[in-house]
Every structure is written in structure tokens, then in C-alpha cells.
């Protein structure tokens, strides 16, 4: 009987010790993950610091041109380039993505929906360098025939819209899936048309999820490097038409990091910092939208 009690007691002690070790190690691992963001931001900031100190933040927007070796550091054309490409891509991908999501979640025949969804997932998994390669060897020559030189804002926009379309579509599918089936049944019972059901019931109630999808896709478009680098021509200029070559912030970093030193290198980190700030803004925006969606949904629940 004595040994019996002893074995139970030691098992209990062992269990508590193991749990303590587990809890502390998981906390440690979680903290490392959490601190990673801080580490990344701090390092980019530290590397950017000399430029911010020597040149001041204003110079990046007021310098007329980008000639880093001669000490002229205007980021404006590249910020504009990034913005235009991302906006264009979002403008094209949003309607196509939403229509794809509606097809998958609401109207498509199951026989087609399953392979189409798989297709979207495959598109999402294609490496950006492969998109870029295809753009370079297939799309750019086609645009060149239409209007030289081919490597252009248009090429970048088209490639990027294809790249972020799966993001919009898959996130939109997820948010449409959250709509209670009773909404559909109610609409069907009133024999509302598809159009009325969609515009009056379905899209409004999925609104916050759909906005989040678009915001996240925009973030992805802004941060994309390889494909843009490969098809946009990379001339630092404010484009006057969609056929003009442009250079994005991300492409600029990729192109010049290899040989940049001193202030030049620091300025590249400043553009990294700008990208981080934009992403932070978008994340906060997405969170705000989904919180708003949450509170409006809870209002509905209370009304019921």
C-alpha cells in the first residue's frame, strides 16, 4: 500500500513538472514569434536611420528625381508607381474575384465549382517569379505590338491583377460562406430575383468580409516585387500613359540593394519602412472593418 501511494504521488509531481516546462517553453516560443515584428521594424528603422538623420524625411518627397549616386533621393515617382500598379490591379481583380466567389459559393453548378476552386488555389500557389517570367515572355511582347515598349504600367497591372485575384476570390468565398443559409431561404421564399437577393441581402451582410478581402489583396499587390520588377520596365518616372514603363518601390529595392552603400543603402531601407507603414495602415484598416462588421452583426442578433 505504501509503494502504491508513492507511485501516485511521484506521477503527480512529474505531471506538474512537465506541464510547467511545457507552459514555459510555449510562452518562450510565442514570445519569440511576437518579438519578431519588433525586431524586423527596429532593424529596418536602424538601417534607415542615417538617411532620415542626414537627409530628413521631407527630402524623399521633394527631391525632383532619383539619382542616388548624385545625392538626389526623390521617392515620389516610385511611390506613385507602386500605388498606380496596386490600384489598377485591385480595380481589375476585385470585380473578377467577387464574381468568382459568387460563382463558387452561390450560383455555380457543383460539378464546375469544385475544379474552379481548385484552380483558384493553384493560381494562388504559382510563384511570383513564374508569373513574372510569363509576363516577360508572353504578355510584354503582346503589349509591345500594341504600343512599344511593352514593359509598362499596363503589363504590371495585368499580371498583378491575375496574381491577387485568387486572394480576393478565396477570402470572399470564406466571407460569403459565413452568411446564414436562412437568408438565402428567406430570399428564395419571397422569390426575389438573383440581383435583388445579392444587392439587398447577401452583399450587404457579407460587406465587412468582402472589404477585408479587397484591403488584404491591395496590400499584397503593393508588396509584390518579382513580377512587377520583371514586367514594368523599371524606369524611374511619373508615367503619362499605361504604356509607359514605371518602377515600383519594391522593384527599386531589389534592383539597387546589390550595389547600394551609405546613404543610398539607407534610403532603400527608408522605402522598406514606407512599405511597412503602408502595410500597418492596411492591417489596422482591415481590423477596423471586420470589427465594424462584428458589431453590426451583433446588432442584428440583438434585434432578433
Amino acid at each position: 500500500m505504501q509503494t502504491f501511494e508513492m507511485s501516485q504521488l511521484s506521477s503527480l509531481r512529474r505531471a506538474h513538472r512537465r506541464d510547467r516546462i511545457l507552459r514555459h517553453s510555449l510562452r518562450l516560443l510565442g514570445s519569440i514569434t511576437g518579438l519578431l515584428v519588433l525586431l524586423i521594424t527596429l532593424f529596418v528603422l536602424q538601417e534607415a536611420w542615417p538617411a532620415l538623420q542626414n537627409l530628413g524625411f521631407i527630402r524623399f518627397w521633394t527631391d525632383g528625381s532619383w539619382h542616388p549616386l548624385e545625392g538626389s533621393f526623390g521617392l515620389m515617382p516610385m511611390v506613385l508607381g507602386s500605388g498606380l500598379i496596386a490600384l489598377g490591379a485591385t480595380a481589375i481583380a476585385t470585380p473578377l474575384g467577387l464574381l468568382s466567389a459568387l460563382f463558387c459559393q452561390c450560383y455555380g453548378p457543383p460539378l464546375l465549382v469544385v475544379p474552379y476552386r481548385r484552380l483558384l488555389e493553384l493560381l494562388a500557389g504559382i510563384p511570383s517569379v513564374v508569373y513574372g517570367f510569363w509576363g516577360l515572355v508572353v504578355l510584354v511582347p503582346q503589349i509591345n505590338r500594341l504600343h512599344p515598349p511593352g514593359q509598362s504600367l499596363l503589363a504590371g497591372t495585368l499580371i498583378l491583377s491575375l496574381m491577387i485575384l485568387p486572394t480576393v476570390a478565396l477570402l470572399a468565398i470564406a466571407s460569403l460562406a459565413q452568411i446564414p443559409s436562412s437568408y438565402w431561404q428567406g430570399a428564395a421564399a419571397l422569390s426575389l430575383s438573383r440581383w435583388t437577393t445579392l444587392t439587398r441581402i447577401i452583399l450587404p451582410s457579407a460587406r465587412s468580409g468582402l472589404f477585408t478581402a479587397v484591403v488584404l489583396a491591395t496590400g499584397r499587390a503593393l508588396g509584390e516585387t518579382m513580377a512587377v520588377l520583371m514586367v514594368c520596365g523599371n524606369v524611374v518616372q511619373v508615367p503619362s500613359s499605361v504604356f509607359d514603363p514605371v518602377r515600383s518601390l519594391t522593384a527599386n529595392i531589389a534592383l539597387e540593394m546589390a550595389y547600394a552603400t551609405g546613404d543610398h543603402r539607407a534610403v532603400l531601407f527608408v522605402s522598406g519602412l514606407v512599405l511597412l507603414a503602408i502595410v500597418a495602415g492596411l492591417v489596422v484598416m482591415a481590423e477596423g472593418i471586420s470589427n465594424q462588421g462584428m458589431s453590426s452583426e451583433s446588432v442584428i442578433v440583438h434585434e432578433r
Binding site: 511576437g34 515584428v37 524586423i40 529596418v44 503593393l222 508588396g223 519594391t250 529595392i253 492591417v283
Partner: peptide
């Protein structure tokens, strides 16, 4: 941790490259 992961998920890969190069 969740909040920082949300942020990390949006960070462009080129910025990871910058960080990796510096750190």
C-alpha cells in the same frame, strides 16, 4: 502574438529580404 502575426503576414517579402540582409 496574434496581433503581431497579422502584421507579419502583410509584410512584403522584399522587406523580409532587407531585414534578413541587415540582421
Amino acid at each position: 502574438v496574434r496581433r503581431s502575426l497579422d502584421f507579419l503576414a502583410g509584410v512584403p517579402s522584399i522587406v523580409f529580404g532587407l531585414f534578413g540582409n541587415a540582421f
